[in-house]
Design a protein around this nucleic acid. Structure first.
Length: 345
DNA sequence: TCTGGGGTCCTATAGCCT
DNA sequence: TCTGAGGCTATAGGACCC
């Protein structure tokens, strides 16, 4: 197997710099509605902004303190999606075995292509650069797990090939956090066990991992630390749920405002699923309180619907299940158990 | 003082059925 | 009739990803 992972460099920021060349070379921070004093987090920071310590998921206000002179811009998903499609169209000319992993990433199975991996990668980089003026980083390895780690090893504009023989020398020294699926919680848990690197993780026996993380995650970590991953590329997926949520600019205690906002969000979700041609059975309402405590209430209908009246009524019933003793920071609604409407099924 | 919004997947628990 | 063992579904919460 030869799997290629392609990851666009500082994608949102780079797309903005194409539109506004005067920002090139400056620290650029994309996030929220572009106002660094309001609630929101950083989606993407340009490499110049990263030098100030700004990174994804950081509160915009923190980014503003670290780098007050940065250019702060709102997220423009439509523009990034258009660019993403352009790039994916280029990738599809190399193979149809593609997994789209988010707006700025993809896996390609290049096992059956009769050209060396490096040549394919260089050609992809050239095509993307020529046709969009954007750069990307590419990793090539025997599986998705290693290809993704590889693409991250020499950013930006990198090209990294990892073979099975490289695992001990090049993968084991890396921190466990580099493994897809290992986030802050798992990292902290492993640190408690004295484990910091992937190599140290590989020294743990399977039963110790399954005991600590459960059957599924334990198995995954055991295999991942050895560079073993047999997961196939997902070339097509059906949506499982669709939702909308919003964080209030200031925490709210007015039930009227909360209810009205929920009604609006529900109507947006209904528009979304109708447009995609789905009905749904389950409605989940989410409330986050001022102390960040988050709760959900769900109700499942007997039969699938896309009726705004029915779904709004169900959302309101869910809302009644909450106790509002604290101010509300966020309200959201999600529908699931989706079924494609129409003849086909 | 901070901590978005779009999702997916996993786990635990409870009720119901065989 | 009683007591489980499993399977399935609904619900709630949480970790993680981009």
């Amino acid at each position: 197997m030869r799997i290629l992972h392609i990851d666009m460099d500082a994608f949102f920021a780079s797309v903005e710099e194409l539109r506004r060349p005067e920002f090139i070379g400056k620290p650029v921070v994309i996030g929220g509605n572009g106002d660094p004093i309001k609630r929101g987090v950083v989606s993407t920071a340009s490499y110049e902004a990263r030098k100030f310590g700004v990174h994804s998921a950081m509160p915009l206000r923190t980014a503003h303190k670290l780098c007050p002179d940065a250019v702060f811009l709102p997220v423009d998903y439509e523009e990034y999606s258009r660019m993403s499609e352009k790039i994916k169209d280029i990738l599809r000319e190399f193979t149809t075995i593609i997994e789209e992993a988010g707006i700025d990433e993809a896996f390609l199975d290049i096992s059956e292509i009769d050209t060396s991996s490096e040549e394919i990668a260089k050609e992809i980089k050239k095509r993307i650069k020529d046709e969009t003026r954007l750069t990307c980083s590419i990793g090539i390895a025997p599986n998705k797990l290693l290809a993704k780690i590889a693409s991250d090893m020499q950013k930006p504009n990198g090209l990294t090939v990892i073979t099975k023989g490289d695992i001990e020398s090049r993968i084991w020294p890396l921190p466990v956090r580099k493994i897809w699926g290992v986030g802050p919680k798992t990292e902290a848990c492993l640190k408690d066990m004295g484990i910091r690197t992937i190599g140290e993780l590989a020294s743990l026996p399977l039963d110790k991992l399954t005991e600590r993380f459960g059957e599924s995650s334990g198995d995954y970590l055991y295999n991942a630390s050895r560079g073993v991953d047999e997961s196939p590329l997902i070339t097509h997926r059906e949506p499982k749920s669709s939702g909308r949520e919003t964080t209030f600019e200031k925490d709210v205690d007015d039930l009227q405002v909360i209810t009205e906002t929920l009604a609006e969000l529900t109507s947006e979700v209904v528009d979304d699923i109708k447009e995609e041609g789905y009905k749904c059975r389950t409605v989940t309402v989410k409330v986050r309180f001022s102390d960040f405590e988050t709760h959900t209430k769900a109700k499942t209908l007997y039969k699938p619907t896309d009726s705004l009246k029915k779904l709004r009524k169900t959302a309101f019933e869910c809302l009644k299940g909450f106790e509002f003793k604290k101010k509300v920071r966020l309200i959201g609604v999600r529908v699931s158990k989706l079924e494609k409407v129409g003849n086909g099924n």
